[in-house]
Nucleic acid binder design. Structure first.
Lengths: 143, 143
DNA sequence: TAGTAAATGCAATTTTATGGCATCAAATTT
DNA sequence: AAATTTGATGCCATAAAATTGCATTTACTA
């Protein structure tokens, strides 16, 4: 799927700014989710720290990015599927957090249906697998 | 299952201190996981903030507690099953995070087996469902 | 019960996140 | 195209969360 930052912004009636485009470019670059600290390291020279926070929040609110927490409670971001809309995310695939390189992958595997106990009404579900990713198990540095 | 803080400490060759016992008591009290901030609020008068951090870390390392992250990246703690041991957690049940009262429940539902893509080796897996818990959907305050 | 090893509490520091506000840039209107 | 309006950005200050170092206290051992 081709990512076009300009159209994404237009579709969500967000102003087209250099900073917003850069953030989307950076996140779309990898097939994996990228963490807030990593983004900050990559973009820190061109985008203010505070602006980055605000852009990420806006994108999450609008359903452009989805946020996944890793083991350390650090936020990781990935592009949402087109099914996502404002205030309603559909990232119902399994995520994989490599314990070696820390990267988070969006796997092309759906989360199996889970029967909830009586009284519990689930509206979203999230599965994270932890282990070694393909790159790391192949012995190459994933960075 | 009956929780006996003193025995738990003994079993893991940890010194028996007032603070450590209190933390275990507090966490064992509820069937739900309790967040670090909540613990801090409850124990702040009797246990120093830093000590609480250290105790929780120790417990997690030893496999006494397992830590679950909620949507906001806040750490939540629950007593591990007896199968947990040092550096090897087995909390392979589904968690439920109520979006109303914020509590995290350990459901008595196992995480379904998930087929990993070629090259990905999962050693642990974690599923969190988000929605309304039984207490909140029954219209009562869960606090 | 004296000695030792470890846990606690406190102060200081670091890291991470948020809020206010002046300035600047993008879209809109004329 | 220039002016106007709307909102995004950057910087400053502040708040909140987490970590480190060290003196003191506490639990276990001999």
């Amino acid at each position: 799927m081709k990512i076009d930052p300009v159209n994404i912004l237009k579709d969500h009636s967000l102003k087209h700014t250099r900073q917003r485009v850069r953030v989307l470019e950076e996140i779309a670059m990898d097939a994996v989710a990228i963490s807030q600290p990593e983004l900050e390291k990559k973009l820190g020279k061109e985008i203010d720290r505070v602006t980055l926070y605000r852009i990420l929040n806006t994108y999450e609110d609008k359903g452009i990015l989805h946020r996944v927490m890793d083991l350390n409670g650090t936020a990781n971001y990935a592009i949402c599927s087109p099914a996502c809309s404002e205030h309603h995310h559909h990232d119902e695939h399994v995520h994989f957090n490599c314990t070696n390189c820390q990267k988070i992958y969006c796997l092309d595997v759906l989360i199996p249906a889970i029967k909830m106990p009586k009284g519990f009404k689930a509206s979203a579900i999230n599965t994270m697998a932890y282990g070694i990713c393909e790159k790391c198990s192949a012995g190459m540095k994933a960075d």
